[in-house]
Amino acid sequence: MAELDPATLQALEAAAFRRLRDHLQDRIDVQNIDLMNMAGFCRNCLSRWMFEAAVEQGVALDKDAAKTLVYGMPYEDWKALHQAEASDGQKAAFAESIRAHEGPGAD
Rank of each mutant, 00 (worst) to 15 (best):
P6A: 13
G58C: 06
A100D: 08
M38S: 13
Q25S: 01
V30I: 15
L69R: 12
W78G: 02
A92H: 09
A100G: 09
P74T: 03
P104F: 01
G72H: 08
H23G: 13
A100V: 04
D34M: 10
C45N: 07
A15I: 00
E96I: 00
P6Y: 04
M50P: 07
E13F: 06
M38W: 03
D62Q: 00
I28H: 09
F17E: 02
G103N: 04
G103E: 03
R27G: 06
A7Q: 13
L4W: 08
A60R: 05
K63F: 10
Y75L: 11
L61E: 00
D34K: 11
D77E: 09
A93Q: 10
L61T: 00
A54T: 05
A86W: 00
A95M: 04
D62A: 03
A65T: 01
D107M: 07
R21A: 08
A100Q: 11
A53R: 08
N37K: 02
D22N: 12
L9V: 08
M36I: 00
D77A: 08
L4H: 09
D29F: 08
V70G: 01
A53E: 03
K67S: 15
A65L: 00
G105F: 00
A15C: 00
Q57H: 14
N37G: 04
F94V: 02
A53L: 05
